[in-house]
Design a protein around this nucleic acid. Structure first.
Length: 927
RNA sequence: GCCGGGAUGGCGGAGUCUGGAAAACGCGUCAGACUCAAAAUCUGAUCCUUAGUAGGUACGCAGGUUCAAAUCCUGCUCCCGGCACCA
């Protein structure tokens, strides 16, 4: 792996010569990849996206584009903050994780020193940002580092503030209520990171319907996920030992569990807690069904969970396995048994194959009592069955005949409209924070949102997406779906790093919402370094990005030199729009769509994004890389372990964009062999004497040019894998044959060496540079012009030599089938009249049978013509070959290759093979 | 649950959009060459039958459209990803 030795050398040269720092102007290509979040070391999976992006940037550069490929760092949000928190609390898991990251770069001793500084979140951010820069350089990325920034910098804050001012002017910033996960004890929002097992077992927010049942001048509030079953309610359940409270809630008197009262308090309701009581105190009394007005008994049940919903549920025995079972359990109760009527439970949802679904399911599953754990599964089954195949029946009034899946929301809407129901948010599972406090749902009422629901905005965006190039194209639909589905989205949070929300500085702009327009920021970021932030008024950005005002006016207002202003505006105009944004499909449903929509809302149409490309993830030996499995390869170790060019070659060639790459050590080693072979060939060719170019050499050169033009198209559509197959694997296979056939194979390589090296330079740039130096080409391979695709291809040489190769495989076929190891092989070419038939077929194609009259033996001729038509000879050939001459010329190579003696068109023909020969398929006899 | 995507040899995967000789390219395996030996490298074989260019079996399952289906349509099974404050 000699490339490891020269890689750093070329990286240094690129750096010193600022090879990838473009000056605005000319035919431009502006490529971006989302900036990495600096909360740790990147691994080879992250590297896939950046590597493919770099290959695109480099390819475009070869094609004569002036390429801008910048990079920055994301530090906004809470993760970095909570890392510092945890490190300062000496949380051992976090400390160990970060020590592990540090050891990638530092000595043991130094790691311990540095981690102490990580109590400061900015230190975490800047440390890893720096390391990512050196990681990226070590892989040879052609990034313009002069524009680097991070999202915590003041100039960036100014830019984001401007952006929010624009959004506000457009009227898409709205304030409202919003449910979030919350800890009562810690009195703050909890993110996935703060929840115990939050990463593996996600917690989401579920909507419960609280339905009010009049009860002795108050309301007893039952919670349900299945409002459509209200028509079949027979009674209410409370937990007999549970503690309930009487509360004043938004002007009404409610009875709910004590836990529920606490939740309601933080869900935006006006709650006064009054007297508490045990569930059993109201057992046996009656509440009123809000739909039918019927009296319904309140009964005790132990399955009722006080900490889920309101701690009160209504009972639908025909459709809920728990309810049915609890009634069965209660039937024999001396006092309450008489309130239970199992013979007349109302069925309100008809399901084919069932009469009373809950009863029948419980019986087939032999449920013992309401404490039976299997009830959870049975309930799920009941719910699913009814949801998909249940129909609301005559007892459901206006909803009769509807499928449950449709009726559910309609019934819910009606209950809410009639004031019978209210919404309660509940967590999807019982969850605690890492500090062991309960997670509940809180509703905050002053949450700021970006309102993506605006139909005009959506329409314009969809229209634009349809026009955009999305690669691979199958992801286009995901974009359209996302736009369809987007609604209001919270854009500010109470804590985290980032930009203060300009309309309310108590809030910080949420990290995905501060990263929607920053591709524009790259165009001027380095100019802003010399301007003090107090001069960065909104008018500055209005001018630079939107062309509002004149340099004179803006200069007066901001005190920024007016030439500087013009320079910035010019640079923005020179680079924008963003020609390609490359990243992973996971970003479609959030970042990428915001990126599009914000551009469309704020920028002029000529500056909207042009195209987006996406690549799937990378796994290792069949498994996802994860900290717990300990199977992560950090990007920082790639150069040392494999060499960057090998990494780049493997990442480019082992899977298409939309397929997951499996990093398999064996295949990596195989790729290493090919890379070695390539380097050796170029290196020895560079030293070889010039030789004569024969027909076979022309065959090879032509093959290369054919592969090259195919590969160029493939590179343009980002099919790197196919390009590598053509330029590397196939060509190296052809070279093996060339070595056997040509007098001067290395000198032939010399003819294509420069072009070959350049064509692979985007993928293996260090090796390309090194090869240029072997070849004595005194320029950067990274900046070399893409090979001329109009160079001569000798088609006849290709056809002839491919024919010779087909002779080899035909003889081998026969050897294999006959099981013979011949000493002499007799070859018979087709009789001349068959070539006449061939000429007809080449001209007439499928209609050739019409010309059959010119042949003496029409039966034989028909057979031959039929076979030629079937073989579609016209697709490959334009005229018959002089097969005898071609084979004669290649005789010695064929004899060597096969280890036999060849005799062509000999009169000796013991098996009568001669007559079987066809054009392009001579007959063969083995002796 | 909702919304996407996928299923092809022993394995990774081409081929699907645009129906018309399935398996390009790579890995593995087997055999041979080189070597004292091994590794590396090179050569060949790798669905079945067959002195041949032909036939048969095969692209998750079940149907359908068509002269013709891996490819188009319908239903099903299983896998993977995203799902709003999370970067």
């Amino acid at each position: 792996m000699k490339w490891k030795e020269y890689e750093p050398r070329w990286q240094k040269k690129w750096d010193e010569n600022q090879v990838f720092v473009p000056k605005a102007g000319g035919k431009k290509f502006f490529l971006t990849i989302p900036y990495p979040y600096t909360s740790g070391a990147l691994h080879i999976g992250h590297g896939r996206t950046y590597t493919l992006g770099d290959i695109i940037a480099r390819f475009k550069r070869h094609q004569g584009y002036n390429v801008l490929f910048p990079m920055a760092f994301h530090i906004s949000g809470s993760p970095i903050l909570s890392i510092s928190d945890k490190i300062s609390r000496e949380d051992s898991k976090t400390v160990n994780l970060f020590l592990e990251y540090l050891r990638i770069y530092e000595t043991e001793e130094k790691s311990y020193e540095i981690i102490k500084e990580f109590v400061d979140p900015k230190k975490v951010a800047t440390y890893f940002a720096e390391k990512i820069v050196s990681d990226f350089k070590s892989i040879g990325y052609s990034i313009d580092w002069t524009r680097v920034f991070n999202t915590g910098e003041e100039k960036y804050n100014k830019f984001v503030e401007w952006q929010y001012q624009k959004l506000n002017e457009k009227g898409v910033l709205v304030k409202g209520k919003h449910p979030i996960l919350w800890s009562l004890e810690e009195n703050q929002p909890v993110g996935e990171d703060d929840i115990a097992d939050g990463d593996t077992d996600k917690v989401t927010i579920t909507d419960f319907n609280m339905i009010k049942f009049d009860f002795e001048g108050a309301v007893l509030v039952a919670a349900t996920l299945r409002p459509e079953t209200i028509y079949g309610a027979t009674n209410l359940w409370v937990h007999p030992e549970g503690i309930y409270v009487r509360i004043r809630m938004d002007g009404e008197t409610w009875l709910v569990s004590r836990e529920a009262a606490n939740k309601l308090k933080v869900q935006g309701h006006d709650v006064d807690v009054g007297k508490d009581f045990r569930g059993r105190e109201i057992v046996g009394r009656f509440a009123k069904n809000p739909i039918s007005g019927e009296k319904m008994p309140i009964l005790p049940a132990s399955f009722v969970d006080l900490d889920e919903g309101t701690g009160v549920v209504y009972s639908v025995p025909a459709h809920s396995p728990y309810d049915w079972q609890a009634l069965v359990d209660l039937k024999n109760d001396v006092r309450l048994g008489k309130l239970v009527d199992l013979d007349n439970v109302p069925v309100v949802i008809d399901v084919p194959g069932y009469t009373i679904l809950a009863k029948e399911l419980n019986e087939t599953n032999r449920i013992k009592d309401q404490k039976d754990g299997r009830l959870i599964e049975v309930t799920k089954e009941a719910y699913k069955t009814e949801f998909y195949s249940g129909l609301m029946n005559a007892k459901c009034g206006e909803f009769k005949g509807l499928r449950v899946s449709e009726a559910k929301d309609k019934v819910k809407d009606k209950l809410f409209k009639d004031g019978i129901a209210k919404l309660l948010y509940e967590t999807s599972r019982k969850a605690i924070t890492r500090s062991k406090n309960k997670v509940v749902v809180s509703v905050i009422d002053d949450q700021w949102f970006i309102d993506y629901s605006n139909p005009q905005w959506k329409k314009t965006t969809n229209k634009w997406i349809n026009k955009m190039k999305i690669i691979p194209e199958k992801y286009k639909k995901s974009f359209l779906d996302t736009v369809e589905w987007l609604d209001k989205r919270p854009c500010a949070r109470r804590r985290g790093l980032g930009t203060k929300f300009p309309l309310d500085p108590e809030w910080v702009i949420e990290p995905l919402s501060d990263s929607t327009l920053y591709t524009a920021f790259y165009t001027v970021s380095k100019h802003l370094n010399s301007i003090s932030t107090d001069k960065m008024k909104p008018e500055l950005f209005d001018f630079v990005f939107l062309g509002r005002g004149t340099p004179n006016e803006i200069s007066k207002l901001t005190k920024i030199n007016k030439n500087k202003l013009s320079e910035m505006r010019d640079e923005f105009l020179a680079w924008y729009p963003n020609d390609l944004r490359h990243t992973a499909p996971a970003h479609i449903s959030n970042h990428l769509t915001f990126f599009l929509m914000h551009h469309i809302m704020i920028f002029d149409k000529p500056h909207w994004p042009q195209s987006i490309s996406l690549n799937e993830m990378l796994i290792r030996e069949g498994f996802k890389m994860s900290k717990s499995k300990g199977n992560i390869i950090p990007l920082a170790k790639v150069a040392e372990k494999y060499g960057s060019d090998l990494y780049r070659l493997y990442v480019a060639s082992s899977a298409d964009l939309d397929a997951v790459i499996d990093w398999r050590e064996r295949d990596v080693q195989a790729a290493s062999g090919k890379l070695n072979k390539f380097i050796e060939l170029i290196s020895s060719a560079s030293k070889a004497e010039d030789g004569e170019i024969g027909l076979v050499d022309e065959w090879f050169i032509s093959k290369f040019r054919l592969y090259l033009s195919e590969a160029t198209k493939q590179m343009e559509s980002l099919k790197f894998r196919d390009a590598v197959v053509n330029l590397m694997f196939k060509l190296l296979n052809d070279y093996k044959w060339l070595e056997k056939r040509s007098k001067n194979p290395l000198s032939t390589i010399k003819h294509i060496a420069r072009d070959w090296v350049v064509s692979l330079a985007p993928i293996i740039p260090h090796t390309a540079e090194e090869c240029f130096s072997y070849l004595g080409i005194n320029e950067f391979a990274s900046l070399a012009t893409w090979p001329d695709l109009k160079q001569k291809v000798n088609k006849q040489a290709v056809i002839n030599e491919d024919f010779v190769l087909s002779i080899v495989s035909q003889i081998r076929d026969v050897e294999k089938i006959s099981g013979k190891k011949p000493k002499v092989v007799y070859i018979y070419t087709a009789e001349p009249w068959k070539n006449d038939a061939l000429k007809i077929v080449l001209k007439e194609k499928e209609r050739s049978m019409g010309k059959i009259s010119s042949f003496d033996d029409k039966t034989k001729a028909a057979k031959v013509i039929q076979s030629l038509i079937k073989g579609r000879v016209w697709e490959k050939y334009s005229k018959p070959l002089d097969e005898e001459t071609i084979i004669t010329e290649a005789t010695s190579a064929l004899e060597n290759e096969l280890g036999v003696k060849l005799k062509i068109n000999s009169s000796k023909d013991p098996l009568g093979k001669k007559v079987k020969a066809m054009p392009f398929r001579p007959a063969i006899y083995l002796e």
